[in-house]
C-alpha cells in the first residue's frame, strides 16, 4: 500500500512551548489510522498543520506525493483533505442541508447538484429528518454528525476526524463507527482520527500512532499498541474513556 499522507519530521512550538517534535506519521492509502495520546500530546496541533491552519516550524507534509505544507486551509481542502473541528463549528444560522451544501459546492458544478449531493450525505448520516432545521437547534451528537457530513460533502480522499465520538452515547458511537467503516469500505476513503474513546479507536483503526509530549512513542496494530509498556506508562494517572 502506498502512503496517502506522510508527515515527515514535523515540529511546532508555540511561544517556546514545544507542541510537536520531529513527528513521523504515515497514513497508507485506504487505511484508517488512529492518533491517540494524553491531553496536550500534540494531536490537534498535527491535524492543524496538515490542514494548513498552522505552518510547521520544520519538516514536510506530503499528500499523494505532493508537498502540502505551506498551503492555506482552503487549498488543503482542494488537494483532497477534509477535516472536522474538535470544537464543532456549525454555520449556526443556516439549515442542516445548507450547511452540507456549502461543503458539497466545493466539487459540484452548480448549486442544484450540490444540494442533491448534500441531501444524500445528510440522509446517510441520519440527519434526514432534521435537514430543514437551523444548525443552532441541533444537539451535540447531531452537531458532530453535521461536522462529519459537511467534511464528507467536499469529497475528500483523506478525512481528518478530531474527536467526533466524544460526548456520544455508546450506541451512537457504534453507529458512527459503522458509518465510517462503510464509507471506508465502499469508497476507499482514507481516514485519520484523533480519538479518546478507545472503544471507537479499537473498532475502527487498523494502525495506531501514540503521541506523548509532542513525540511519537509507539505505533502499530491496535492490539500491540495497547500492551506497549511505554503507552501504558503515559496513560498512567490519566482517565481513559473505555
Amino acid at each position: 500500500m502506498s502512503a496517502a499522507l506522510e508527515v515527515r519530521g514535523v515540529s511546532k512550538s508555540f511561544r517556546g512551548l514545544r507542541a510537536v517534535h520531529d513527528a513521523w506519521i504515515d497514513v497508507p492509502q485506504g487505511a484508517i489510522v488512529g492518533l491517540i495520546g494524553p491531553n496536550g500530546a500534540g494531536k490537534t496541533t498535527i491535524f492543524n498543520m496538515v490542514a494548513g491552519v498552522y505552518a510547521a516550524d520544520a519538516g514536510e507534509i506530503v499528500f499523494r506525493g505532493r508537498r502540502i505544507d505551506g498551503l492555506r486551509p482552503d487549498q488543503v481542502c482542494a488537494a483532497g483533505i477534509g477535516r472536522t473541528f474538535q470544537l464543532v463549528k456549525p454555520f449556526a444560522g443556516l439549515s442542516v442541508l445548507d450547511n452540507v451544501t456549502v461543503g458539497a459546492l466545493h466539487r459540484a458544478p452548480n448549486v442544484s447538484a450540490a444540494k442533491k449531493h448534500a441531501a444524500e450525505i445528510v440522509e446517510r448520516l441520519g440527519l434526514g429528518a432534521k435537514r430543514e432545521q437551523p444548525a443552532s437547534s441541533l444537539t451535540l451528537p447531531d452537531r458532530k454528525r453535521l461536522e462529519v457530513a459537511r467534511a464528507l460533502a467536499t469529497r475528500p480522499e483523506l478525512l481528518l476526524l478530531d474527536e467526533v465520538m466524544a460526548g456520544l452515547r455508546p450506541t451512537e458511537c457504534d453507529q458512527m463507527v459503522e458509518a465510517f467503516r462503510e464509507i471506508n469500505r465502499a469508497e476507499g476513503l482514507t481516514i485519520m482520527l484523533i480519538e479518546h474513546v478507545m472503544r471507537a479507536v479499537m473498532a475502527l483503526a487498523q494502525r495506531i500512532v501514540v503521541l506523548h509530549h509532542g513525540e511519537v512513542i509507539a505505533r502499530g496494530a491496535p492490539g500491540e499498541v495497547v500492551r506497549d509498556p511505554a503507552v501504558l506508562g503515559c496513560y498512567l494517572g490519566e482517565e481513559t474513556e473505555v
Binding site: 482552503d74 481542502c77 482542494a78 477534509g82 477535516r83 463549528k89 456549525p90 454555520f91 466545493h106
Partner: peptide, 12 residues
C-alpha cells in the same frame, strides 16, 4: 457564520 470552518471546506 464561521470563517475558519468555511475555509476548511475549500472556500478561498
Amino acid at each position: 457564520e464561521d470563517e475558519e470552518a468555511a475555509q476548511a471546506l475549500g472556500i478561498n
